[in-house]
């Protein structure tokens, strides 16, 4: 019997891990798609290189946070040599746990008036 891994036990996530999981939360992506998505949602601050991207993907696959999928979002437009990756349920739980952890930190920073509270 394999031991159940608690999502919280993997926190805090490395920035590259967090951003890849976040990029995959919208749907399946290939390596270049992940890289572009990460660069976009970090306003170009984080640009994953090939080694870092695929090294992280390898670790996420072995940790069962993501899986490789055969389906193609648009088979006609796509190169079949590309590999697509999908967030697993466990990966989703880990991502949610990390987002909650970060949001708690943001709340602390707001209470300490380090950043302003968003206007409602």
């Amino acid at each position: 019997m394999t031991k159940q891994v608690e999502p919280e036990s993997l926190l805090p996530l490395r920035p590259s891990v967090f951003h890849i999981l976040l990029a995959l939360s919208d749907g399946d992506l290939h390596g270049y798609g992940i890289m572009q998505e990460v660069a976009e949602h970090t306003a170009g601050q984080i640009k994953l290189g090939p080694g870092t991207l695929y090294g992280t993907i390898k670790r996420l696959l072995s940790g069962k946070l993501i899986v490789e999928v055969d389906e193609r979002p648009d088979p006609e437009m796509d190169d079949e040599r590309r590999r697509y990756y999908r967030l697993t349920d466990f990966g989703q739980k880990v991502l949610k746990a990390e987002v909650q952890r970060i949001s708690r930190m943001v709340s602390v920073a707001q209470r300490k008036r380090l950043i302003a509270k968003p206007r409602t």
């Binding site: 390596g31 090939p50 590999r83």
Partner: peptide
Amino acid sequence: EYGPQMAQLF
């Protein structure tokens, strides 16, 4: 395992 994917990304 990842060489062809990395080359594609490059």
